[in-house]
């Protein structure tokens, strides 16, 4: 390691009295004092949530009201703090979405464990789990802080769907193989 000696500029007399510097500082702080506050007064004023914000993970339905999660459990697998717990199940044959075959029976996200990393959203092949704009979650008990399936759908609501892949699948199934 080499050293380089840097000559300091000698202070002028005025600088050595501190006075001009102190006055400069006072000027700066006074300007700051009369400017509006930077602080967001949280409960009354809410921050604008930017797009792509990673809030509380939620489950969403497609615009037709179909629950998008098929309980593939990839989120459960990828979840670093193991906050997600899914019990998969079969959709009954008389359900309008029976062609999807699989849906979660139970879907719990332990918000005491969740670290809001968004890996579940990234890994989801069905675009069913989304970290949306809810950022303040509180409860009085540990049980309250575990979001069950109903709560997750309530938080998630409906998001637009670009694909409707299962609807297309059903339509193709009903149409059968053409020209056979």
């Amino acid at each position: 390691m080499s050293f380089k000696t840097v000559e300091r500029k000698p202070l002028s007399f005025a600088e050595r009295t501190y006075v001009p510097q102190i006055l400069g500082g006072l000027k700066t702080t006074f300007k700051k004092m009369v400017k509006p506050n930077e602080t967001l007064e949280y409960p009354e004023a809410r921050p604008t949530i930017p797009p792509g914000y990673r809030g509380v993970p939620t489950l969403v339905k497609d615009p037709n009201g179909r629950e998008k999660c098929v309980s593939c459990q990839l989120c459960e697998f990828v979840c670093p703090p193991k906050a997600i717990r899914i019990k998969p199940g079969e959709i009954p044959a008389d359900d309008p979405t029976a062609h999807v075959e699989k849906a979660p029976q139970e879907f719990d996200i332990d918000m005491l464990r969740c670290i809001y990393c968004g890996l579940c959203q990234e890994v989801c092949p069905e675009e069913a789990i989304w970290l949306q704009n809810v950022f303040s979650l509180s409860g009085y008990t540990r049980e309250e802080m575990v979001n069950n399936k109903a709560k997750l759908y309530e938080l998630g609501g409906t998001l637009p769907d670009d694909h409707y892949k299962w609807d297309k699948k059903k339509a193709a199934e009903e149409a059968g193989n053409g020209g056979h």
């Binding site: 702080t29 700051k32 004092m33 009369v34 400017k35 506050n37 930077e38 602080t39 007064e41």
Partner: peptide
């Protein structure tokens, strides 16, 4: 209050 204003905060309120 003055410290808050200088620091861009609203201070105790």
């Amino acid at each position: 209050k003055i410290s808050a204003w200088i620091q861009g905060r609203p201070g105790p309120n």
